[in-house]
Design a binder for these strands. Structure first.
Length: 886
RNA sequence: GCGAGGGUAGCCAAGCCUGGAAACGGCGGCGGACUCAAGAUCCGCUCCCGUAGGGGUCCAAGGGUUCAAAUCCCUUCCCUCGCACCA
């Protein structure tokens, strides 16, 4: 592509990428003090960047470049989330191994990153499948184990038969319980699993969400939801079985309704339910064939057991019911059909008594409550509850918790411990050796890393097949032992990688504590919402655990979080192969260049919003860049930008200053789209001004220079090219961010005055049907009107009085009185207006716009200079206008 | 059902927190400049009426607060997302 089409983006982009690299522009030295830490979620190494990546990384790159120009040192690193199942699958399909496949993917992706010109400190690159990285996963495992944060439990786990692996709860999606990766229905299996005890931190993880002001509300909400804290009480019920009396604790949030309990229910997999199934075929049948936890109808079966209500002493029938879930509460519940939807439905279908023990608080509509028809689930006043009658629900709960034998207040969480075991090859080996004598023994730190053995193709877990690797000796007794063959969930890798970036090559610890303390937390973290729960919650957990291990002073990893929206297909739907609406970044980069791609994705919408791809938008981004480069090449870089005498030049200079101010604010808010909009408008004005007869080249030069700097974070290569054309020193990437060179305080009012006046002139010309204006007079209001307006604005109620109390104004007679009345009518919404001299100067500066639009000379006159008739129509902020015609 | 976020002109979308301009901007559409012509570009217009800057009706619907509401409060309807037989 040659000059005539604008610019040769291939040549330009590669050249600047090389030069940045050579000059180490994006390196941040280890001794940097508290650099701005800007981080994008590192990509999984699929080998292909998609448009979503481009957007994600364009956002952080623009922010990082802006911060750098604004004077901060910036840590903007990149790495590879490179362990995981897809690599293994790919290796199996392609007759290669996961490592080679992953390395190739990394190569490809790095090239794509480089082609896009993202400014990363590649010296800090981190690759999770590298033993130098994953050994620290193992080290962390050891620390956590020492601290009691690791547990081995025989657990029922989610098992995906297609992936042949265990899934975390978070990886199971929807009511249908499908695998998050392959949508296969998930089954259950019992396996010995390693867990990180995230529940230890449940309360802190929940409470600290309140402090995360920089996070989107929906993410905070999702985390709260996921942790799912419920306060209530546990109450012991004595359950009579044919063999013995067992005490079963039931969790309830409504202890105040305990007098209304009419039956008791157990989960199908509760030990007592299983024992009952042994004794009773009907129960066995129900448990094995009927129970359907996903069904709409609560189903259950009576048993030969009874439970004693600890408050009333009543005997309650015990059911095994499928709506009771063993992983919620204690897997046993007291059922109060009068005040719970589910219990009510069950009671009706099983013809069990329904008893009202709560009445509405005000008592008035007690009779409206038909407890047989529907449960009353609100709090209220206790009735039919013996000595507790008349108490409100809340105090009743407190008293009952205290007074019922064995009852305790209790808290339930939906959050589970984090099962980190995966029966997979391509992950971090869990540093455990199983010894017949000593049981599971940690591999000591000095023998880390436990490296992955060579990959072998097998239907099962390749680690199981790696006999030589697997058989080892016990670190404690030296006897024969086998290695743990499970590897870690890849979310372990990503739960602390942001710390590794602070000291990526350190070989005696995962990260340098002092530097991490100084550089953390991440100031701005950007990625997709799909990580709202898992990755972000695990990272928070690990950070807190580190803090308690004295490895870190911070308890939260991410100060501010942005979840970026999707890039949709041109048809407005999610990009997908099946729809064929995908757009490949490679094509865009080769056809239009990286700068165009970046500019397009950043100007299309705010970072957190979805937007559809638009080829038209891409083209317009491209031509904008061409125009800017063209201007930069035409400008006389030596032209001085002093205070211009020409009002038009001063007008432009002010607009430039105002744009600096506006764009800077937008960059601060990461509203790149609006920043670009402001720059775009300014460049249009510069073009228009440049094409005028009398031009101050210094003003144009300054304007173009400002445009180039402001746009540099977004379209860095073209801007370097422009910078060179402008004789800029060094890289624009390292230039100082511009500051307004003029006071722009009254800019908004000035813009409004100018816009309004121009519109008025257009209106007049059009409505009056003036074909060819020969001259246009613009007459500002006399000073006394401004004075009157000021008085009116300060007036407290009596506007006319305030205005007419002024001697000078009184002398104006009727004109002043009329205006005072007008002001009074408009009060208290009186407009702010520029002072008379500023108003006039503003109009004079803007006159050239009107002149060029109507091709007629414009005179800006003070009221005294114009004839009275015309002048009398002027008001502050609203000049009188006369259009002359032949 | 619970929770969160939304509903602004033909479409996309800012403004709403901190009330005071028919409501930024873009696309599409219309007109003009340039051109042999088209494209690109530039300048306008784009809720209705209007031969001197005027008038009317507007921000999902309804109500309220206020001198004044797209903006604050209440109610209803609709959309999107997350969670959900949670004891």
């Amino acid at each position: 592509m040659g000059r005539q089409n604008g610019y040769d983006h291939r040549e330009i982009e590669r050249r600047w990428q090389d030069q940045w690299d050579e000059a180490d522009v994006f390196r941040v030295p280890d001794d940097a003090e508290d650099p701005a830490y800007v981080l994008a979620m590192f990509p999984y190494t699929s080998g292909q960047l998609h448009m979503g990546h481009v957007r994600n990384y364009a956002i952080t790159d623009a922010l990082a470049r802006y911060r750098r120009m604004d004077g901060d040192e910036v840590l903007h690193p990149m790495g590879w989330d490179s362990f995981g199942l897809p690599a293994e699958n790919a290796a199996n399909e392609r007759d290669t191994n996961p490592r080679e496949w992953t390395e190739r993917c990394i190569e490809q992706m790095r090239e794509q990153f480089e082609a896009l010109g993202f400014g990363y400190d590649w010296d800090r690159e981190v690759t999770t499948c590298d033993p130098d990285y994953y050994r620290w996963n193992q080290w962390i495992f050891n620390r956590f184990r020492e601290a009691g944060l690791v547990e081995r439990q025989a657990a029922t786990v989610n098992w995906c038969p297609s992936c042949e692996t265990v899934l975390a709860d978070e990886q199971v999606e929807g009511e249908a319980e499908l695998c998050w990766r392959c949508d296969t229905p998930v089954e259950e299996r019992d396996l010995d699993q390693w867990f990180f005890r995230t529940t230890e931190y449940a309360d802190e993880l929940l409470e600290d969400i309140d402090e995360l002001d920089g996070w989107p509300t929906n993410v905070r909400d999702m985390q709260r939801n996921w942790i799912g804290r419920t306060e209530g009480a546990e109450v012991p019920f004595d359950v009579e079985t044919p063999d013995a009396t067992e005490t079963v604790r039931a969790f309830t949030t409504r202890l105040d309704t305990i007098h209304g309990a009419t039956f008791f229910a157990l989960a199908p997999d509760h030990p007592l339910a299983e024992a009952a199934a042994e004794r009773d075929d009907e129960v066995a049948h129900f448990v094995e064939h009927v129970a359907d936890p996903d069904g709409d109808e609560p189903q259950g079966v009576a048993t030969d057991m009874t439970a004693r209500n600890p408050v009333t002493g009543e005997e309650l029938p015990v059911f095994v019911a499928d709506f009771v879930l063993s992983d919620i509460g204690t897997g046993a519940l007291m059922a109060v059909p009068g005040h719970d939807e589910r219990d009510h439905a069950f009671a009706q279908s099983h013809d069990l008594p329904i008893r009202q023990v709560i009445a509405p608080e005000d008592g008035a509509d007690t009779e409206d409550v038909d407890i047989e028809a529907a449960p009353y689930t609100e709090d209220g006043v206790l009735v039919n509850s013996g000595e507790y009658d008349g108490l409100s629900s809340e105090p009743a709960r407190e008293r009952l918790t205290e007074e019922v034998d064995g009852a305790d207040s209790a808290v339930q969480y939906q959050l589970r411990d984090w099962g980190i075991s995966r029966q997979r090859y391509w992950g971090t080996p869990i540093p455990i050796v199983h010894c017949e004598e000593c049981g599971p023994v940690s591999v000591p730190d000095d023998r880390l890393p436990v490296e992955l053995p060579e990959f072998v193709h097998t239907t099962g877990n390749p680690l199981d097949a790696a006999e030589e690797w697997k058989h080892t000796e016990c670190p404690e007794c030296g006897g024969p032992a086998v290695r743990e063959t499970d590897t870690m969930d890849t979310f372990v890798d990503s739960s602390w990688y942001f710390l590794r970036f602070t000291s990526p090559d350190l070989d005696d610890a995962p990260f340098d504590v002092e530097r991490a303390n100084d550089w953390m937390p991440v100031d701005e973290y950007v990625g997709g919402v799909e990580h709202a729960v898992m990755h972000l919650l695990y990272s928070r957990f690990v950070t807190k655990a580190f803090a308690d291990l004295d490895l870190l002073d911070h308890r939260e990893p991410f100060e501010s979080l942005t979840t970026q929206g999707m890039v949709l297909g041109e048809d407005g739907a999610k990009m997908s192969k099946s729809r064929g609406n995908g757009v490949s970044p490679e094509r865009i980069v080769s056809e239009y260049g990286a700068d165009t791609a970046r500019l397009f994705v950043l100007r299309a919408a705010r970072p957190d919003k979805d937007f559809p791809w638009s080829e038209e938008g891409v083209r317009s981004s491209n031509s904008f860049l061409k125009r800017l480069l063209e201007m930069a090449r035409e400008v006389d870089p030596d032209a001085a930008a002093d205070d211009p005498d020409d009002p038009a030049a001063e007008y432009v200079a002010r607009e430039v200053a105002a744009t600096v101010e506006a764009a800077t604010d937008r960059f601060e808010e990461m509203e790149f789209n609006r920043a670009v909009q402001a720059i775009d408008e300014m460049v249009s004005l510069l073009v228009r001004y440049r094409d005028r007869d009398a031009v101050d080249p210094g003003v144009v030069a300054r304007g173009v220079e400002v445009a180039v700097k402001l746009l540099a974070p977004v379209a860095p290569h073209v801007c370097e090219e422009c910078w060179t054309a402008l004789d800029g020193e060094g890289f624009v990437a390292e230039a100082d961010w511009p500051t307004p060179d003029r006071d722009v305080n009254d800019h908004e009012q000035a813009v409004r005055l100018v816009e309004r006046t121009r519109e008025d002139v257009r209106d007049i010309v059009e409505v009056a049907g003036i074909e060819e204006p020969t001259a246009i007079d613009v007459v500002t209001a006399p000073e006394w009107m401004h004075d009157a307006l000021e008085l009116a604005r300060d007036a407290d109620g009596d506007v006319v009085g305030a205005v007419m109390s002024d001697g000078d104004l009184r002398e104006r007679g009727e004109a002043a009185a009329d205006y005072a009345k007008d002001l009074a009518a408009a009060a208290p919404a009186l407009p702010e207006a520029l002072a008379p001299d500023r108003e006039r100067a503003t109009l004079e500066r803007a006159a050239w716009l009107v002149e060029s639009e109507f091709d007629a000379p414009v005179r800006v006159l003070a009221a005294e200079e114009a004839d009275d008739d015309l002048a009398s129509k002027a008001e502050p902020g609203r000049p009188a206008i006369h259009v002359h015609e032949n």
